[in-house]
Amino acid sequence: MQVYDIELGSRLWLGSARYPSPAILSEAVRGADCDVVTVSLRRENARAGAGQAFWSLIRDLGVRVLPNTAGCHSVNEAVTTAQMARELFGTRWIKLEVLGEGELLQPDVFGLVEAARILCDDGFDVFPYTTADLGVADRLLEAGCRVLMPWGAPIGSGRGLSDPFALRALRARFPDVPLVVDAGLGLPSHAAAAMELGFDAVLANTAVALASDPVRMARAFADAVRAGHAAHAAGPMPVRDFAEPSTPVIGQAWR
């Protein structure tokens, strides 16, 4: 798949947070053949230097980093964080999160569109964390985004795809825009379902990091993503409400 004219080898993108150890994070990323990893930026204590060690680890992985603006609740916060991330990570890529208030960590789509417009105009390659709303998607694309990252379910919930119909509609409405399900996946089957809908990639973090065996779970997600993508390419059969015999009825005895 291509995003912002960059060819990517993996359709499974991984977050880097909440792993039991840096070594397990590294092994999970390598085991899943993942080449996009999301990162963030936080206050650094000069004595502790935790960020320096993490930066060294990420560089050693040789992956493409996708910094986020996680935790930002205003346009100004998100824009400033994006500018800081661009300098810190040396990339124009930014996973833009402008969050609403409340426990769902849902996108504030009005702030998101405004921030996306500012950042696109400033030369960023914006990956907006959004809902599956078609009108918002239109506005984000008008603002200059060339990829969309709708949520599957609330961040870290593990609920899977809350509204497959909305995601299917988004796919149908924008057949040529790279679409990546971001947030809410809990199982490899959720990732496969997203890929079967025709999504281009999925981003998983908590589902892998909090598994009993994150490395094994990362591989399971990678397998599911490959299977779901292949299934979509193969053209799934139409769904029916009633049974249709698979065994030929012609020549049936006693009829």
């Binding site: 977050g15 792993y19 963030s40 990420i58 908590t206």
Partner: peptide, 25 residues
């Protein structure tokens, strides 16, 4: 930006944020 730090004047009460790479989802 890093290139502006040498010239950036600080004033009493300024709020300075110093951020580094960190894990994120």
């Amino acid at each position: 930006a890093a290139g502006q730090r040498a010239a950036q004047r600080l004033c009493e009460g300024d709020a300075l944020e110093i951020l580094a790479p960190m894990q994120g989802g």
